[in-house]
């Protein structure tokens, strides 16, 4: 039984959690990489120069992507 979504359903709550964080990771990581590689920091980072070198969009996107990929894979339909 898929956890939380009812008897007979195949997608569990944790799959939804994984899916949405994976989607966000897939949006943010390439965008953050583009900012990093093309030296296009956003307006707020121009005003806070210490922030430019941290590349928060890329790293946060990568974290969401990793978290999402793990949960989507672990709880994909047919595994529980």
């Amino acid at each position: 039984m898929a956890e939380g979504t009812g008897r007979g359903e195949s997608l569990s709550i944790w799959f939804f959690v994984g899916m949405i964080t994976l989607l966000y990771g897939l949006v943010l990581t390439p965008y953050g990489a583009w900012q990093w590689l093309t030296h296009h920091p956003p307006a707020n980072e121009l005003l806070l120069p210490w922030l430019i070198h941290l590349h928060p969009t890329f790293w946060w996107g990568l974290l969401l992507l990793t978290f999402g990929a793990f949960y989507t894979t672990k709880y994909r339909p047919g595994t529980n």
Partner: peptide, 8 residues
């Protein structure tokens, strides 16, 4: 707004 640019 201070810490997060587009996307974040």
């Amino acid at each position: 707004i201070r810490y997060c640019g587009p996307g974040l």
